[in-house]
Design a protein around this nucleic acid. Sequence first.
DNA 1: TTGTACGCGTTATCAA
DNA 2: TTGATAACGCGTACAA
Lengths: 341, 341
Amino acid sequence: MGKRITVEDIAKQLEISSMTVSRALNNRPGVSEEMRKRIIDTAKELGYRPNQIAKSLVLKKTYTIGIVIPKMEHFFFPEALRGIEDVSYEHGYHLILTHSNEDRERESIAIQTLEAKRVDGILISVSEAGGNIEEYQNVVKAGLPIVFFDRCVFGIGASCVHINDEGAARLVTEHLINHEYKRIAHLRGPEGVSIGKERFNGYKKALEEYNLEYNAHLVVESGFNDDGGYQAMNKLLNLPRSERPDAVVAVNDPCAFGAIKSTKQRGLKIPDDIAIVGFTDDPRASIIDPPLTTIRQHAYTVGKTAARQLLTQIEEESDEIENITVDAELVVRRSCGCLGF
Amino acid sequence: MGKRITVEDIAKQLEISSMTVSRALNNRPGVSEEMRKRIIDTAKELGYRPNQIAKSLVLKKTYTIGIVIPKMEHFFFPEALRGIEDVSYEHGYHLILTHSNEDRERESIAIQTLEAKRVDGILISVSEAGGNIEEYQNVVKAGLPIVFFDRCVFGIGASCVHINDEGAARLVTEHLINHEYKRIAHLRGPEGVSIGKERFNGYKKALEEYNLEYNAHLVVESGFNDDGGYQAMNKLLNLPRSERPDAVVAVNDPCAFGAIKSTKQRGLKIPDDIAIVGFTDDPRASIIDPPLTTIRQHAYTVGKTAARQLLTQIEEESDEIENITVDAELVVRRSCGCLGF
DNA sequence: TTGTACGCGTTATCAA
DNA sequence: TTGATAACGCGTACAA
């Protein structure tokens, strides 16, 4: 931040007061057209750039929203970010991007930074390590609008935008059941993260509905990445042959990719020996061998919706809380063996 | 931005001056340990959050760097962003993220916004539509550090971090030549963008070096996305059979994916009928059918290096300009037909 | 239509 | 060790 032209500089050059300059530059009434023109011209000439910092201080408004993202590597987040950006841009808001790297403490610091920067609102997807509930509550208490997206925290008085994780997991599990799979395993996400829990619930409810036995040995915690999926799948494949699953529901696509790798390494065929389905519709899902049956999440729409919800809260100063569900759909490809080829 | 606790509030509660509070909270000397403790305690109690806006105004420093990214959909950028974020975080800087969406005007607005927000520096990858040279020059003139990454603009007094695009394009083209391909086409990026031009130069130089005829019909502009690659490949395949290429160098992986789609649609086999190579090493490259021979770009390293260069300029107030090249490597997979299976 | 005084929340400077 | 004052750049409120 070097020396910059200020309204005062422009005022001096034209021998008028800084207020007139301010009025002219902000299209306020009370300035003669001639004066306004002269002011705008010299502003351009001098390369004036308004100081948004000073503006924010007096207006108590930054036109900035803070984002907390747990993991940039997941395709879901850049895509959601794109949705957030599009909506914010339309509304004249800008983004401060922070990254928790799935770390509790780093997330906590990120939130405090955003508060210090006086963002007008926060969009957050909580870290895999589980949430800083108290931190979130402080934000809510302080009257700073906050909207959770994808990985949510309920019951603290904040809005939430996510897909129907339980329903979608149930859908994909039922799809497997309907195609005669009997021993269906689940590579589950962390207990403390909403989507991990809900997808697990969906899986379980599908089993119950069809009177399939729930077997705790067939549920392995995997985290959200491919390495976790690889490790978890290894555990399942280390079971005695008779106890091995004939199908696997992975908590997300990266996890499914890890599971596919593990399966192939042992010379097993997908879907002939074992079916695998994912959740996300990562760009790789359609071109991996075999193409992955999965749930299409519409990350862009989730981002857009979350941003809209946040901006509504900000601009209408409403604190109406909403729990918004974005539609998801089953995408059937070869990895589940249901296409008949 | 609601009512927030200020240093003044803390000062009043303790019946001291706000300066003492400021000193205590910023670990400055000149406060008795006892006083410091009391101040920190009441700050916590009251839920004090420093107002970085006010701080920035007086310190003329925001600890924020602005990013301009042309297209979130390219895998390269989230990955570079991750590198940028990691380095910035270490240095205590935060990111304002803007998105030009490959649009000239939107890029221009983004830059002006970042100036208004008084970022301490800018990292930019220019839009496909070509650069706002004057805008960049104004930034440089204003003394605001700016570093280009990946898609650069040279000769305006700004640093640049990119891979050796020309060398890498030459490498991959030579690889094809060495494996007896004779009619090698190029799906090229836009004229006005550095990487488009340099990769084209690399392609051309490889041909020259091996005395292969350069044929302008075999060079088609494609843009940077898969649709552009698809369209461009269609043009090549519409040529009379004898004029068709036997190999194609795509300007990047998304473009190569489009070309692969076009080729498959016509029932042609890759690499038997036509070889295709890309540039990026997108996550899909390794799992598409056939796996794509490409250049691995190390986007994360590019982001990291660019951020480091920018922070050096900011913190050392040096305006030494550097043109930094990040290594890239050839990744040979099946799509070029050189693996012998 | 234009200008003056003051405040936003913080820190630097100088005095006590 | 502590405090009073001014300043950062701008906009609000009121006066001329």
